[in-house]
């Protein structure tokens, strides 16, 4: 394929790729990642069917505007996660692989995690009275938001890989 039609970084999961980064130089705030995230967390996994589901599926990522730059933000899977520390029921926990996971059945909906998350990456699922956050697309080999990003702003990998990529593409 020529560069004109080369697909931008559809990241396949590997053990190292635990985090999703956003290159703020490339994010154009199209919100395609938001749609893709909600669709991925729907029953049908198809946009036109997903928007008719009840309850509506919920996105775990949002495009925000900070200091005049747009960027797409989701759970950062922090090393020392404030949400895990604040979770009184033990629903949120750090997994062996370093990701921040949630046991939905344990969540009591106290919303403390939402209060403490510095990225605003956790949301409420009112219908079920539980918190929802990025689960790194357990049903896919890649990440829905990264695969959907039309400009290649979203990137899945380690911090080092992301830094390298930023330096290369400068």
């Amino acid at each position: 394929m020529s560069p004109a039609t080369k697909k931008v970084s559809a990241n396949i999961k590997n053990e190292k790729a635990l985090k999703i980064f956003c290159d703020i130089r490339k994010c154009v705030a199209c919100k395609t990642c938001e749609l893709a995230c909600a669709v991925e967390h729907s029953k049908d996994k198809e946009l036109l069917k997903a928007i008719k589901e009840t309850p509506l599926p919920k996105k775990r990522r949002h495009v925000s505007d900070s200091f005049g730059k747009t960027l797409s933000v989701g759970c950062q899977h922090c090393k020392e996660a404030a949400c895990v520390a604040a979770c009184m029921s033990g629903a949120l926990y750090k997994d062996k692989d370093g990701t921040t996971k949630q046991d939905k059945d344990k969540c009591v909906g106290c919303w403390m995690c939402i209060m403490v998350c510095p990225f605003g990456a956790i949301d409420r699922r009112i219908e079920e009275h539980v918190a929802v956050k990025c689960d790194l697309c357990p049903d896919r080999d890649d990440y829905a938001c990264v695969a959907a990003c039309p400009t290649g702003a979203l990137f899945a990998g380690t911090i080092d890989e992301f830094e390298k990529r930023i330096r290369e593409k400068r």
Partner: peptide, 9 residues
């Protein structure tokens, strides 16, 4: 293929 997925909006 390069355009897939197409924009949901």
């Amino acid at each position: 293929d390069a355009q897939t997925p197409h924009c949901g909006f």
